[in-house]
Amino acid sequence: KVLVLALYDYQEKSPREVTMKKGDILTLLNSTNKDWWKVEVNGRQGFVPAAYVKVL
Rank of each mutant, 00 (worst) to 15 (best):
K1N: 15
K1D: 10
K1V: 15
K1E: 12
K1H: 15
K1C: 06
K1I: 13
V2P: 14
V2C: 06
V2E: 12
V2S: 10
V2G: 14
V2H: 15
V2I: 11
V2Q: 15
V2Y: 11
L3T: 14
L3F: 14
L3C: 05
L3P: 03
L3D: 06
L3K: 09
L3A: 10
L3M: 09
V4R: 01
V4T: 03
V4P: 00
V4Y: 09
V4F: 06
V4M: 09
V4G: 13
V4D: 00
V4S: 04
L5D: 01
L5Q: 13
L5M: 08
L5C: 06
L5H: 07
L5I: 10
A6H: 00
L7N: 03
L7S: 03
L7Y: 04
L7W: 04
L7I: 14
Y8W: 12
Y8C: 06
Y8M: 15
Y8N: 09
Y8D: 14
Y8F: 13
D9R: 03
D9I: 02
D9P: 07
D9M: 03
D9Y: 05
Y10F: 09
Y10E: 00
Y10K: 01
Y10T: 01
Y10H: 05
Y10I: 01
Q11C: 06
Q11L: 07
Q11M: 14
Q11N: 10
E12H: 10
E12A: 09
E12Y: 06
E12K: 11
E12V: 07
E12F: 06
E12P: 06
K13V: 09
K13C: 06
K13L: 14
K13T: 14
K13N: 13
K13Y: 04
S14H: 08
S14C: 07
P15F: 12
P15D: 10
P15S: 11
P15K: 08
P15Y: 08
R16N: 14
R16V: 14
R16Y: 14
R16T: 15
R16Q: 15
R16S: 15
R16F: 15
R16H: 15
R16L: 13
R16D: 15
R16K: 12
R16I: 15
E17S: 06
E17P: 05
E17K: 05
E17A: 06
E17N: 07
E17V: 04
E17G: 10
E17F: 08
V18T: 07
V18R: 02
V18H: 04
V18Q: 03
V18N: 05
T19N: 09
T19R: 07
T19V: 03
T19K: 05
T19H: 06
T19E: 05
T19S: 11
M20Q: 02
M20G: 00
M20T: 04
M20K: 00
M20R: 00
K21I: 14
K21V: 09
K21W: 11
K21A: 11
K21T: 09
K22G: 07
K22N: 05
K22F: 06
K22D: 02
K22R: 08
G23W: 08
G23R: 02
G23C: 05
G23Y: 07
G23L: 03
G23I: 01
D24W: 08
D24L: 06
D24I: 04
D24Y: 05
D24C: 04
D24V: 04
D24M: 14
D24E: 08
D24A: 09
I25M: 11
I25E: 04
I25Y: 08
I25N: 03
I25C: 05
I25Q: 11
I25R: 07
I25P: 02
L26P: 02
L26F: 09
L26Y: 12
T27Q: 15
T27C: 07
T27K: 07
T27R: 10
T27M: 11
T27I: 15
T27A: 09
T27G: 07
L28D: 00
L28S: 02
L28T: 01
L28G: 01
L28N: 01
L28F: 03
L28R: 02
L29S: 03
L29C: 05
L29F: 05
L29I: 14
L29K: 06
L29R: 04
L29A: 03
L29Y: 05
L29E: 04
L29P: 00
N30V: 12
N30A: 11
N30E: 14
N30Y: 09
N30P: 03
N30S: 12
S31A: 12
S31R: 07
S31Y: 08
S31Q: 12
S31W: 09
S31T: 09
S31L: 07
T32A: 15
T32C: 06
T32V: 11
T32P: 05
T32K: 09
T32E: 14
N33V: 07
N33I: 08
N33Y: 11
N33R: 09
N33L: 09
K34P: 14
K34G: 09
K34I: 11
K34T: 06
K34Q: 10
D35A: 12
D35L: 08
D35W: 13
D35Q: 13
D35V: 12
D35H: 12
D35N: 08
W36M: 08
W36H: 03
W36I: 03
W36K: 03
W36G: 01
W36N: 03
W37N: 01
W37V: 14
W37M: 05
W37P: 02
W37R: 02
W37L: 06
W37H: 03
W37G: 00
K38L: 13
K38R: 14
K38A: 14
K38V: 11
V39Q: 00
V39A: 02
V39R: 00
V39I: 10
V39Y: 00
V39K: 00
V39E: 00
V39S: 00
V39C: 05
E40C: 05
E40T: 07
E40S: 12
E40I: 09
E40F: 06
E40W: 05
V41H: 13
V41Q: 14
V41N: 13
V41S: 11
V41A: 10
N42P: 09
N42F: 09
N42K: 12
N42T: 10
G43P: 02
G43Y: 07
G43L: 09
G43N: 12
G43H: 08
R44Q: 13
R44T: 09
R44L: 09
R44C: 04
R44A: 09
R44I: 09
R44K: 14
Q45D: 07
Q45Y: 10
Q45I: 13
Q45G: 08
Q45R: 08
Q45K: 12
Q45E: 11
G46N: 01
G46E: 02
G46S: 02
G46P: 01
F47Q: 04
F47S: 03
F47T: 04
F47H: 08
F47L: 11
F47N: 05
F47M: 12
F47I: 09
V48F: 00
V48S: 01
V48H: 00
V48W: 00
V48C: 03
V48Y: 00
V48N: 00
V48I: 13
P49Q: 02
P49I: 02
P49V: 02
P49E: 01
P49R: 04
P49N: 02
P49G: 01
P49W: 03
P49L: 04
P49D: 02
P49M: 03
A50R: 14
A50Q: 08
A50T: 06
A50G: 05
A50C: 05
A50P: 05
A51P: 11
A51G: 12
A51K: 09
A51L: 11
A51E: 15
A51M: 13
A51W: 09
A51Q: 13
A51Y: 12
Y52P: 00
Y52I: 08
Y52H: 05
Y52A: 14
V53H: 00
V53F: 08
V53E: 00
V53A: 03
K54F: 15
K54Q: 15
K54G: 07
K54M: 14
K54N: 08
V55D: 05
V55G: 04
V55I: 15
V55E: 09
V55Y: 13
L56H: 08
L56V: 11
L56I: 07
L56C: 06
L56R: 03
L56E: 06
L56F: 12
L56G: 04
